[in-house]
Structure formats: C-alpha cells, structure tokens
C-alpha cells in the first residue's frame, strides 16, 4: 500500500470534510463536499475496488452534488444567519471521535497486514450482482423508483387556491 498516496489523500479528504462542515457559505460547503467524495473514491482505487470508486464518483459527484447545488439555488432567498457555534454538537462530535479512536487503537485483532490480493474484475461484480444479490438488486431498483416518484410528488407545484 502506497504510504505517500495514503497521507496525501487523507489530508485532502479531511480538509475537505472540515471545510464542508464549517464554511459559512452553503455553495462553498457543497463544493468542498465534492472534494471529500473524490478523495474517498481515490481511497477505493487505492484499496483495489476500482468499480466502487467509479460508481462513487459517478453517483456522488455527477448526481448528488449537482442535486445539492440545484437545491441551494432554489432556496437561495433564505440565507441563514448562523448565530454563533452550537458547542453541544462540537462536544458530542469530539467525544464520538475520541471514543472511536480509543476503540480502534485498543483492538488487537485489527493489526493485520493486507492479504495477497487478486484484482476484482467488473465481470465478477456483475456475476455476483446477477446471482447471489439478485433480490437486493431488485429491492434497490424498487427503492430508487419509489424515491424518484416520491421526490417528484413532494416538489410538485401545489395548486394555489385563492
């Protein structure tokens, strides 16, 4: 595993995440979120899961990020003045991070080296999607259809009764 690549991606990803969580302007936060998604996709490439990395870029950068930006534009008149920082959230987040860190560093069974690895081809993924995972695949298709219709109904213009 390439150590330099790991460190560079880690710095970029975490900086992007911090920017996404703390920047005052929504557009900037959404664009930083894109950096995080690309960074995570780079990690997937590093870990040998190229297909998932490509799907990640495709779905998150191509679809979710554009959706978020569109929503920001549609609700632009509402610029929330953030009064101070909500310290409760910061404390909870820090506590969760500390707890997770403590657990990770104290679990001995995690200290394993990466096993010998043969690259995962798209064909293998496709075959298992069509054999062992047919039912989850169909359910995901159903969920996506329902989400599509639901989102359309939610944002459909209501008839103005005056």
């Amino acid at each position: 595993m390439n150590a330099t690549a790991f460190i560079v991606i880690a710095i970029i990803t975490i900086a992007g995440a911090l920017a996404a969580a703390t920047l005052p302007k929504l557009i900037h936060a959404a664009l930083s979120l894109v950096i995080v998604f690309v960074g995570i996709a780079a990690y997937f490439f590093l870990l040998g899961a190229e297909f998932v990395g490509l799907v990640q870029v495709f779905v998150y950068v191509g679809a979710v990020a554009v959706l978020i930006l569109f929503t920001i534009l549609l609700t632009r008149r509402d610029i929330v003045s953030e009064r101070g920082i909500n310290w409760g959230g910061v404390i909870v987040a820090l506590a969760v991070f500390g707890g997770l860190l403590w657990i990770i560093l104290n679990t001995t069974s995690l200290a394993v080296l990466a096993p010998q690895f043969e690259p995962l081809t798209v064909k293998q993924i496709g075959e298992s999607l069509m054999t062992d995972y047919v039912w989850p695949l169909q359910c995901v298709g159903l969920v996506l259809t329902v989400a599509l219709i639901g989102a359309l109904i939610l944002v459909m213009e209501e008839k103005i009764e005056r």
Binding site: F51, L54, V55, F58, A63, P119
Partner: peptide, 14 residues
C-alpha cells in the same frame, strides 16, 4: 482500465 466506459461517464459527469 477494466471499467473504462464507466470511467468516461463518471469523469464526464463532473
């Protein structure tokens, strides 16, 4: 790359 077509569309959507 094994998923070249997917790469094309993933990057293209950016």
């Amino acid at each position: 790359i094994d998923g070249g077509i997917l790469f094309f569309f993933a990057v293209g959507s950016t």
